[in-house]
């Protein structure tokens, strides 16, 4: 019973808003810390890759960005499911706060993929299964954001967006599978990435960068969800108290 109570307490916007505010600096600090450590290992310490030369160092942002782009979509779908099942106010806002960061991650993944592909495969873009799926994932993000932006009523936007996310998450494996199949049929195995055994420093560099991206995404999403919360709940007493409280603090 006590757990239940706590869960509800944190799910209530009035508690969550200040909590998020306190959490943001921590995640920002983690992001900076992991980022610096990861860059140090990846850019300064790690040796070159004997097949790909120094160009492989793009991996330290390409792979974390791709992971995050997929992970964020899954997290959004998770919030969507929670929101549709339990009708919690916060879930839809969380999904909306995550979407732009997820889309940026997908874009970064494509951008760095292109910059990696040019020296390795000799082309900015190849219809490789992974790049193609990533492109479709970017379309899914854009579709979600466009749908949510087109609906005026925030509650309807949450629900419709959530439904779209669930439909998308069911489709992602199907899309990935079909694209991969299509790719192998058309291209043979000509553009497989070289799978060199990775040095331990490289692996650590990549993991640290992944943690950096992860903390970064959380910090940005929390900040964004705070604006959405204020906007949505601006007629409630807690927002009024919160705003006036902040005002007092500034004057003091």
């Amino acid at each position: 019973m006590k757990d239940r109570f706590n869960l509800y307490r944190f799910a209530s916007p009035a508690t969550f808003y200040p909590l998020a505010g306190r959490m943001i600096p921590w995640f920002a600090a983690f992001a900076a810390l992991f980022g610096l450590a990861g860059l140090y290992l990846g850019m300064l310490v790690a040796p070159t890759d004997f097949q790909q030369g120094e160009g492989y160092r793009i991996i330290f942002i390409h792979v974390p960005a791709s992971w995050m782009s997929m992970f964020i979509y899954l997290v959004m779908a998770f919030w969507a499911a929670i929101g549709l099942a339990f009708n919690t106010r916060l879930s839809g806002m969380m999904a909306q706060a995550l979407a732009p960061t997820g889309a940026l991650m997908a874009f970064l993944s494509l951008w760095t993929g292109a910059l990696w592909g040019k020296p390795m495969w000799g082309a900015w873009w190849v219809w490789d299964a992974r790049l193609t799926s990533e492109l479709i994932l970017l379309f899914l993000y854009i579709g979600y954001m466009a749908l949510v932006a087109a609906i005026d009523d925030p509650r309807r936007a949450d629900k419709a967006g959530g439904l779209l996310l669930l439909v998308g998450v069911v489709n992602i494996p199907i899309i990935y599978f079909s694209v991969q199949w299509w790719n192998t049929l058309h291209q043979g195995s000509s553009v497989n990435l070289t799978k060199s055994s990775m040095a331990v420093t490289m692996l650590w560099g990549m993991l640290l960068m992944a943690f950096c991206f992860w903390s970064y995404a959380i910090a940005v999403a929390l900040a964004r969800v705070r604006s959405i919360l204020l906007e949505r709940e601006r007629h409630t007493d807690w927002v009024k108290a919160e705003l006036l409280g902040v005002g007092d603090g500034e004057r003091a």
Partner: peptide, 9 residues
């Protein structure tokens, strides 16, 4: 925008 990506398979 919503439907075309889902049509790909």
């Amino acid at each position: 925008l919503l439907v075309l990506p889902l049509y790909i398979p």
